[in-house]
Design a protein around this nucleic acid. Structure first.
Lengths: 225, 225
DNA sequence: AGAGAGTTTGACCAATTGGTCAGGATCACG
DNA sequence: CGTGATCCTGACCAATTGGTCAAACTCTCT
């Protein structure tokens, strides 16, 4: 039930509101611990079964808490799910935010790819949580996709397009470049079962191979003629 | 409830066994029609909600049949799901099978990418069905992944590796090349909601843009120096 | 037309699921 | 130490879900 150790993708702001407790003043030590335990257990279960497929009993068992006790901290199954998603969205989009106009464009993008690949390795459950959500039509975060996410992507797409018109990278569609980066990197988390079934990798060697391949793929495709 | 019109990815062999009917002799006209209707409805529901998220009532409603009538044709929810998966697996892997040693290697691979992208456009429900299954650990098809699928991929990977050693394509890891092709193309089906939320495409214009981008991506990365 | 196979359904069931609630246990703090 | 706030639980509930079954309906073929 340990919170997975990770490199460091920034602190995760715990920002859920829909709790069922008195909700006065600040967090108790017990609240702090239990809420964090619940969210970790929920991540484990939701990411492996989707919203509908997950049950409160499973989450309760994974958290070693009773079901009514879960509902003491979160007023419904949906509330837990919502809290998880909003807690993780910032972490998830952080790498894209750091894509900066300073530095050499091709290397900047390759660095972004590596960062995303690292996240697929370190935070596969988070990746699968979003994958489940979006494959099923993103019923809980559609507004975020069409709002803040679209804004962020539009912004970075302009930057990439500027690089292209300046001749600093090849002429490519920035949106589809971003989509392909998301797809190729998150694939190693979301389709982990398939990748492992086919490669049968020792330790996690295949992530290094993936890094080599993706570096080649994007460097050659982005380097101006 | 109409079976989606598609280009032509080969006929779909209806090969489910676990039916609940008398099962003597050949199919009745009624059986033919109802089984096909049920599978189409099930595809719609399973692909949008996953196995656990789908309910027999939803499938029954989508098929305009009563729930007990579903269970007259298939003996359980699992049986429907199994029938769907095995019916679609061949279709799904057909493009990879056609990857042939004849012809110009780079163009052969680019053609494969286009074929997969076409499938993402024409058969998004099928793509999502598999995505749901694999994201959740492939509980129903793990043996197929580790068996026939692995064999097929191993085979095609050797072919690609041969091309590389012959200097006819760039030196790339063939397995990760295949994974990246799967990822980038299926992304447009599996993450359709996200893609549309960000691009807000008119008609399906974005598929053509994706084709252009992916052609560039793989052509530059695979063309030998 | 009539018989038998094939098809359909309403009523029903047990298990699971999300959620409630009254009361008891425990903690923080003066 | 006591008391009020916080924390926890067993028992319970209504709705949903996968699945059964006997009876009724309909099709096909002679």
């Amino acid at each position: 039930m340990e919170r997975r150790a990770v490199k460091d993708f920034g602190s995760l702001p715990i920002t859920e509101s829909s709790m069922a407790m008195p909700e006065t003043s600040a967090r108790t030590r017990i609240q702090e611990k239990n809420i964090s335990t619940i969210l970790d257990a929920a991540l484990e279960v939701f990411s492996g079964a989707g919203f509908r497929g997950a049950t409160l009993d499973q989450i309760a068992r994974a958290a070693s808490l009773s079901k009514p006790n879960l509902l003491y901290y979160f007023k419904s199954k949906e509330a837990i799910h919502r809290a998880l998603l909003s807690e993780l969205l910032d972490t998830w989009l952080a790498p894209l935010r750091t894509l900066d106009s300073g530095g050499e464009p091709v290397e900047e993008i390759v660095r972004y790819v590596m960062r995303k690949l690292d996240m697929a390795r370190e935070l596969p459950r988070e990746s699968r949580l979003f994958a489940n959500e979006i494959v099923q039509g993103a019923p809980h975060i559609l507004d975020i996709i069409e709002g803040p996410l679209k804004t962020l992507v539009d912004e970075k797409a302009s930057l990439i397009r500027k690089w292209a018109t300046e001749g600093r990278i090849a002429e490519v569609d920035p949106y589809h470049l971003i989509f392909s980066i998301w797809a190729t990197t998150q694939h190693y988390a979301d389709f982990d079962t398939q990748v492992r079934g086919i490669l049968r990798p020792e330790r996690d060697q295949h992530f290094d191979d993936a890094a080599t391949f993706l570096t080649h793929l994007y460097r050659t495709a982005l380097t101006p003629d």
